[in-house]
Write a protein that binds this DNA or RNA. Structure first.
Length: 279
DNA sequence: AGCCAGGGAGTCG
DNA sequence: CGACTCCATGGC
């Protein structure tokens, strides 16, 4: 079992349940169980520390080391400094006040890409169902979670690429099926390379994403943010904070950059769902 | 029954 | 480019 000292602010529940990830679920005891890459894990927060217990994984995989979790939960990012920056913008300040412990996680690229395609014109409950059925359909089995449900890893691009639309009928993704397969094939055949995207500046990476069928501006920005860790498109680290201050010495402009708007939108939905503000 | 929910593609002017 | 319309599905 791993134990990690948590920076402040941080909220495990808010981070995992705000709609940026779809494979974690809250347990009756308050802990969170989820599938992360090839492993089933249970996480909980106790007086300033994050506890992570590995519950098994696909054959041949091994538990994630502590360094993985630091990156996954963005524990290296100075959110206190970020919140200071956000205080200058009314909308962002409201987001922070509603759920100050949310962190934008670094998730798996391919999982983020397909999950976000699924999320288009959709709602969180149904998104979670489709994602889970997709994993049952095409992902490697892992084992039984504490609630007795069999869990699977997220499908690999190659496993997805050899499917046809009828194969995906059971997941009931509707018209998103075509886009799921197009994106999967683009990744599987190298047309859309994660390594290349990571090597590209954000605007060029966005263009590459937009060239894939079913990927529009919203999905591209979400993939940059959640699947490629482009926090500079979403100004969450100190380096970018400095860059922003250099470009906007008087503070943030009224219109924040597009990707920041996306994260903001996600958090607003979370806030609305919790009925902390008027719809 | 009708509307809509974390969009995007296709088709018109 | 801007303003449509359609696209499956499921919950309210």
């Amino acid at each position: 079992m791993l134990s990690i000292a948590l920076p402040s602010p941080f909220s495990l529940a808010d981070t995992l349940d705000c709609g940026q990830a779809f494979r974690w679920s809250r347990q009756p005891d308050g802990s969170e169980v989820g599938v992360v890459r090839d492993r089933l894990v249970q996480a909980s927060e106790h007086d300033g520390r994050l506890r992570i217990e590995d519950l098994g994984g696909v054959k041949g995989s091994s538990p994630h080391p502590l360094s993985f979790w630091r990156s996954y939960f963005a524990l290296d990012i100075d959110y206190a400094a970020l919140h200071t920056l956000y205080a200058k913008n009314r909308a962002l300040a409201r987001c922070v006040a509603a759920a100050p412990g949310i962190r934008v996680m670094r998730q798996d690229f391919f999982e983020a890409l397909l999950s976000i395609i699924i999320s288009q014109n959709n709602n969180i409950g149904r998104i979670r169902g489709i994602v889970e059925r997709l994993c049952e359909q095409a992902g490697e089995p892992i084992g039984i979670d504490p609630s007795g449900t069999p869990r699977h890893a997220f499908p690999t691009p190659h496993a997805m690429a050899r499917l046809e639309p009828p194969d995906l009928a059971p997941i009931r993704a509707g018209y998103r099926t075509k886009a799921l397969l197009a994106a999967s094939r683009a990744v599987a055949d190298g047309t859309l390379s994660e390594a290349e995207l990571r090597s590209l500046p954000t605007p060029a990476a966005r263009e590459r994403l937009l060239s894939v069928y079913g990927v529009g501006p919203k999905v591209a920005d979400c993939v940059l943010l959640f699947g490629l860790g482009r926090f500079e498109a979403f100004p969450v680290d100190v380096w970018i904070r400095r860059a922003m201050e250099r470009h906007f010495p008087r503070g943030l402009p009224r219109a924040v950059r597009p990707t920041a708007g996306i994260a903001q939108q996600y958090i607003f939905h979370f806030v609305r769902d919790r009925q902390l503000v008027e719809p």
